[in-house]
């Protein structure tokens, strides 16, 4: 909070509004503590604590390896299936966990919404950030796995920050959209589990993109998770980067972020009344 005397005008807002970056910066400490709260509260009073961040992706990858790699013999683009599936699982789990958390962030904190003013955007934002820790821990495990299988990433690993950014903005964008809709329409809450599952099969988590028929490829790649997951695999295993998909994913994720933020800002005024 700045020390200068400030003047605030309160009046009904109409139509689309921009994101108040300045105000978000003012409340950065709140964002920090909410993120911290998300992390601390999640692992409070558990024996393994943060260890669950390792178990979740690893276990899923192992299960998928047994079912899809060994039993169903799904094509894994020449990689050991566990690497193939872990590289899909890591960004996917981040995406789905964040989506769940962010979509639920407004309803879960309805009490705060109706009792105090703060930029509402910090709620889905903090959900997005608090899941990053799990992701980073999962990344450590990935490095261990790569060592074990003697796989060396190439120079394309430098694309990692860009992929992370696409991943973040996709999750946040959809998260904001669903969060703001869920305040008025509680159906979102019920549909979410099902949507996430559907989206997983629409992304190359357990199978490779080569399995998708060519005539559907374009529509398929509009899902930014396709570009993220396939290129995740590419940069960590030193296989050719799919530039087309990367750019589409980038474009789509920015689009989602903007749409999500706009819808969020537009519906924001109803949050306290309907939550």
């Amino acid at each position: 909070m700045d020390k200068n005397s400030t003047s605030i005008i309160i009046k009904p807002s109409r139509g689309w509004r921009l994101i108040p970056i300045k105000e978000l910066v003012q409340y950065q400490d709140l964002l920090y503590f909410l993120t911290l709260r998300g992390i601390k509260a999640k692992y409070a009073q558990s024996i393994l604590g943060i260890g669950w961040a390792i178990i979740q992706p690893l276990f899923s990858a192992v299960v998928f390896t047994i079912i899809f790699g060994n039993l169903a013999q799904v094509d894994s683009a020449g990689l050991p299936y566990i690497i193939f599936s872990y590289l899909g699982m890591l960004p996917w789990l981040y995406f789905s966990n964040t989506l769940n958390e962010a979509s639920n962030s407004l309803l879960a904190n309805a009490n705060m919404l109706s009792k105090v003013y703060f930029p509402r955007l910090v709620l889905p934002l903090s959900a997005t950030f608090s899941k990053l820790l799990d992701f980073l821990i999962g990344l450590m495990v990935l490095i261990g796995l790569l060592f074990y299988y003697h796989i060396q990433p190439g120079i394309e690993i430098l694309l990692f920050p860009l992929l992370l950014l696409i991943l973040l903005s996709t999750s946040l964008g959809i998260g904001m959209l669903l969060a703001s809709l869920s305040i008025q329409y509680r159906d979102v809450k019920h549909a979410l589990a099902f949507i996430v599952q559907l989206l997983m099969y629409a992304s190359p988590v357990v199978y490779s993109t080569t399995a998708v028929p060519a005539q559907f490829q374009f529509w398929y790649t509009l899902n930014p998770m396709v570009g993220v997951i396939e290129n995740f695999r590419a940069i960590f295993t030193n296989t050719p980067v799919h530039w087309n998909w990367l750019w589409i994913a980038l474009l789509m994720s920015v689009l989602m972020l903007i749409c999500g933020a706009l819808v969020f800002k537009r519906l924001e005024k109803t949050f306290a009344d309907l939550a």
């Binding site: 003047s7 005008i9 009046k11 009904p12 003013y117």
Partner: peptide, 17 residues
């Protein structure tokens, strides 16, 4: 007044934090 919810019409001016 505390900006939790918006008025349906009208305007408020607050001078100060």
């Amino acid at each position: 007044l505390s900006r939790i919810t918006e008025p349906t019409s009208g305007e408020i001016k607050l001078n100060g934090r």
